[in-house]
Structures are given as C-alpha cells and as structure tokens.
Simulated scan of single mutants.
Amino acid sequence: MTTTDAVPVHPSNLDQLRAWDGDEGGYWAAHPDHFERALAAYDDALFDAAAIGSGDRVLDIGCGTGSTSRHAARLAATGSVLGVDLSSAMVDVARRRAAATGHANVVFAQADAQVHPFEAGAFDVAVGRTSAMFFGDRVAALANIGRALRPGGRLALLTWQPVERNEWIREFGGALAAGRTPPAPPPDAPGPFSLADPGVIRAVLDSAGYTDVRIDGHEAPMWFGTDPDDAHELVLGLLGWMLDGLDDAAASRARDALRATITAHRTPGGVVFRSAAWIIRATRSSTTA
C-alpha cells in the first residue's frame, strides 16, 4: 500500500488516483447532473439486484457524486450507507447533495476500496455502478469488499458489455479517432470494458470468494445532454484527449464527426445513445477470510 497526500492506495491504483482525484474526477464533479442522468436508466435494475432492505447497511463502491448512495439511502431508510470514491472533488459534491436532500443516513469518504480497512462484516450489501472495472487488482479489491460484508451479504455490480454492444463508445471513439486505430489495452488493465466478458466476471468473483453469481444482460439509453451543443461540449470535455497528436485540420474533422453523430442522436428528450451492461449479483461466501 502507498500513502499519498490524498489517500492510502494500492500501487496498482495510483494511475486511477491521478485520474479520478485529478482532471477527470474534477470534470465529473463539475457536471454532476449530466453524469448522474447519463446512467440513471440502469438504476432500477441495479437496485433490484441489490435487494436493499429498510434496515440494511450499504457500501457504495465508486459512489461518484452520490446519486447511487442517495438511492440506497432511500431504500435503507432505517439503515445506513457509506459511499467511497477515489475522487475528493466528487466526494465533496456527494456530501453537499446528500445534505441538500436531507439524506441523514449516508456518509462519504475518499478511499481506495481495494485496500481500505473496512470493518469486517460491517455491511449487508455492496453496490457498484460502473466502478469495479477500474481496480488495479480486481480480485484483491472484491475480496476486500467481501470481507466488509457479513457472511451471506450481497454484492450487486453494473459493468459494461463489450464495446460492440455499446453504441455510445463506438460512435464517440470512431469520430474522435479520426481514422487512427488506438492500441488495445492489456486484457487485465483497468478500464471501462475490463469486466465485459462474463467468463472473466465469474472467474474474478470466484477467486474473490463469492458464490451464487448471476449475470444478466440489460440495455438502456444513455443521455448525454439536452441538445447537440450541450452534448458536444460534455463529450469533448470527457474524451478530448483522443485528439492529442492530430494536426489542426484532422482535429477539426474529428470534432465535426463527433457533432454529426451527436446531432443524429437528438431526440425530444435530449441526445441519447444505446448502451448495454451486465447486472451482476453475488453472495459473500461464509468462508471468506
């Protein structure tokens, strides 16, 4: 474990800390309404899988700006919620939003869930919406989370299905790549699609000490903005790094291509792209150390 000025982290998560407690996390924290709404269509399926009871103690892994924590707090009305995230900026936003909405049974902490010393058996349920894919060591992280669950406690995760099933990243990536083929990341590297293969998901959860694994496919629209201008600005702020290395003319063509696909996806409710995710549920083994 490495102790930084921000938070104790595992060395394999230092790059994630730099991103999420740096510019990337800061960008999400500056646009909480957009990013919370983008994934909101998955919340019913995720929380159905979590089956949170009114008195449950809930751990929200990678809580971001807190929408999932607030959702869990409403379900666990007489219980409690701890939301953790590597981003201090997003945790600050999460605290302010929970206070503003009167969610007194939720608290937040900046933490690396892979190594954070959670109290053993302190939670009944752990949830993670598009977070488990970013751990440097997914098995170690999910095992640490498992130790924080009581024996028989529940885990519910949302991870992306493969790229070809997710129109949003295909379209954005294709436009901004400007004909280039980006190098494929190593298969075990952290990233949004590192848990896209159900076989990998099962192997990771089995190694981390979970049983009764169930993986269900789910499709939902992803919302990126009220209109093309709004969505174009959001996506460029998120993925503009893909323009690095392009000359001015190529970068201009890439931005135009991005605007074209965004405009083509305008609906009466805003800019919407198709997406597909896995809803994963598992049980903490009674023999987990």
Rank of each mutant, 00 (worst) to 15 (best):
G153M: 08
A175V: 11
A264I: 03
R274T: 13
N144S: 00
S286Q: 13
D197N: 12
D5M: 10
L157D: 10
D229W: 00
H71C: 08
R165K: 15
L176P: 00
G83A: 13
A49C: 08
A196W: 03
A132K: 11
T261H: 02
L75M: 13
A203L: 07
A126W: 04
D60M: 03
T261L: 10
L205V: 00
W241Q: 15
D48Q: 15
W168Y: 12
P183Y: 14
P198T: 04
D227H: 03
I52H: 00
A178C: 11
H103I: 05
T65D: 00
H34I: 14
E233K: 07
L238W: 11
G79P: 10
Q110R: 15
G55R: 06
G174F: 09
D212G: 11
G199N: 11
G191I: 05
P182G: 04
R150S: 08
A254V: 03
A51P: 06
M1S: 15
V125R: 02
G152M: 03
G209E: 07
M133E: 06
N166G: 10
P11R: 13
T263D: 15
G174I: 13
W278R: 08
A143R: 12
A109Y: 11
A220P: 04
D137S: 11
S67Q: 15
V107C: 09
V81M: 08
R70I: 03
M90W: 05
A41E: 10
D112R: 12
D33S: 02
A73I: 08
A184H: 01
G209H: 04
E164G: 08
W223M: 02
A203F: 05
T2A: 12
S275L: 07
S80I: 04
E119H: 06
A140N: 07
W160G: 05
R18E: 15
A143H: 11
H10P: 09
A72G: 05
